[in-house]
Write a protein that binds this DNA or RNA. Structure first.
Lengths: 208, 208
DNA sequence: ACTATAATTGACCATAGTGGTCAGGAGATA
DNA sequence: TATCTCCTGACCACTATGGTCAATTATAGT
């Protein structure tokens, strides 16, 4: 990466980054097209290769930026002093949603990058990713009060059941909201719905 | 489609169909490559275009075959006399797993086909798909006994929570088993694990 | 055995897309 | 005026695209 890239208007930087992230996330490394990236970013072909020496260089830069950003803007913002498991997951969902609005392609890029076989992933990125996975683990489970679960339940199983539920809900919601511009829509009713289900979950998994 | 295709050895037919399904499912209509399809199917390029007049013709044929197959081999096999909701979903999971082993690409092709914008979908296929969705609905909810749920729960909410849970579990499992040849692996321990969670679900959602 | 027909092939086609280059232009600074 | 950074798109060699077709082989009917 040409260091001059850092001196660009932040807007232009962001344009290029977002175009690249989206293209890589949607098509994978091999099938991603630098032509589409420059068109989407509104820059000339030469400009892209002026700042990045080739496709792989761009991919690595984008990947590292995502990883760093997830650490600073996502994982760091979760309040791990909350000891109620369901409340903790609720909070994570909120932080994640805010993150997704600001950086729409980060998470889907990371998701695709490390599950592909054709993507050239540098060692440091792989390590950062594994560190991220471990940190995620502690963010979800650390400092959780196990005593609130119904005594006839295996807490481990309860953990996972609750997580799957919220994951399933999230998937359905993204399906429902697909194709819509999330930043221009009022999400309040969806949050209300979500809180309703959260309450129901507490009702069934916690003792009275 | 050239009617002669129907007279081929079933093996050869299946080879071609599976190769096409997989290519379409993984890449979408536009990005799917007929070259890769013939290579995967082990036939000459000319043969493919002898049986199908072009890429779109092949796509339509494959799509319709999937739809018909899902009706006959999947939806028809669910026992809707089972009135216990969780048992019903458990049974659906079993039927679906068996289906997936026999026809590995049907479901993922249908999933991708109707969520893409570049796929040319003929009217009759679209209608068949919508009929399928409606039938799916009745298969899940029809003839279900609402009285087994805890009386302090909204049954509608409980329905959805349970469904999301199983969906989330299924997603995690497919992640875990990805890249493995499902037909050569002993799935028994996974089913045992699944039944364990099923029991736990009954414990929390049904009244004692 | 001969013939007619059906099945199958891969070299070939025009076209479009690939990642990447580079001579040159524009604008600022010295 | 000269030098430097930023930026461009025409252009390159190359690969892949969907689709064709003359030629070959297998099958069947007589």
């Amino acid at each position: 990466m040409n260091p001059a890239f850092m001196k660009l208007d932040l807007d232009k930087q962001k344009n290029i980054m977002e175009a690249a992230m989206r293209e890589f996330a949607e098509n994978g490394y091999e099938k991603a097209s630098t032509n589409r990236i420059v068109k989407e970013a509104g820059i000339g072909k030469g400009t892209l290769f002026y700042y990045f020496k080739n496709k792989e260089d761009l991919y690595h830069y984008v990947l590292n930026a995502c990883l760093d950003n997830v650490f600073d803007e996502l994982l760091a913002k979760v309040d791990t002093t909350e000891t109620d498991f369901i409340e903790r997951l609720k909070q994570i969902a909120q932080v994640k949603a805010a993150y997704h609005l600001e950086y729409p392609y980060d998470l889907s890029l990371l998701g695709s990058a490390f599950l592909q076989d054709d993507a050239p992933i540098p060692e440091d990125a792989r390590q950062k990713y594994e560190k991220m996975i471990r940190l995620q683990e502690t963010i979800i489970y650390d400092n959780i009060d196990h005593s609130v679960f119904r005594s006839d339940l295996d807490p481990e199983k309860a953990f996972r059941l609750i997580q799957w539920t919220l994951y399933g809900y999230q998937e359905e919601l993204t399906q429902r909201l697909k194709q819509q511009d999330l930043s221009s829509i009022d999400l309040t009713p969806y949050w209300e719905e979500f809180y309703g289900y959260i309450d129901e979950l507490k009702k069934v998994f916690y003792h009275v």
